[in-house]
Write a protein that binds this DNA or RNA. Structure first.
Lengths: 112, 112
DNA sequence: AGGTATTGCGCAATGA
DNA sequence: CTCATTGCGCAATACC
């Protein structure tokens, strides 16, 4: 809106005299109302979306926390067993972290 | 806004004649402008927040995916070893799922 | 060309 | 009383 028209009552522009002009104004006023309602709805939806995402986020954070703990526990269990008596041979040279990493990367890559 | 004043130029109400009135209007117009700027900023921020949360969400989804895979892999490895030769005795009666569940719940509870 | 949709702006009522 | 917020109408555009 470059020409920042302040409040010229009306002279040239718009319609003609009074008949068509009024109808045009009325129609535009309705359009304005519609537009503003829509705008407010969108704002509301956006705010709702934020709350929704916040919740999803919490759930995911919790999941990560639980999974991380489980994984840690299992790793300990695994390593404890590995450093045990007769299992030395079996677990000798096993890189647990690498195994895990590999297991995660092999989801759908068929290259190599 | 019960009295839906349409567009009466001005008669009673507001100020008095023209001196104080104008100043009052001008000040209000500035306030209106401030208010609207602020409103738009807030809308922008809300939209940015949505995008930000969307990203965080993606990252977390991926983390969950990876951790779940790692965990699955480790469980398989564990169980495979359990159903092995001489380890039957050691793993006999072990409920892996329960162990994992317990390991997750023992974050800070000291009750028995 | 001709309509609707959006947007900046000012006014007035109302909220704080 | 002052400033902030909000419904509303106008006019300029943006959009089709």
């Amino acid at each position: 809106m470059p020409p920042k028209r302040g409040k010229p009552k009306r002279d040239i522009e718009s319609g003609e005299d009074s008949d068509e002009y009024r109808k045009k104004r009325d129609r535009n006023n309705l359009a304005v109302k519609r537009s503003r309602v829509k705008s407010k709805q969108k704002t509301q939806e956006t705010m709702s979306r934020v709350n929704q995402l916040r919740q999803e986020n919490s759930v995911l954070e919790e999941k990560v926390k639980v999974l991380t703990q489980e994984l840690g526990f299992l790793k300990e269990l695994f390593l404890a067993h590995a450093s045990n008596n007769a299992n030395q041979a079996k677990f000798e040279g096993i890189d647990l972290e690498k195994l895990l990493k590999d297991s995660s990367e092999n989801t759908d890559n068929k290259k190599t």
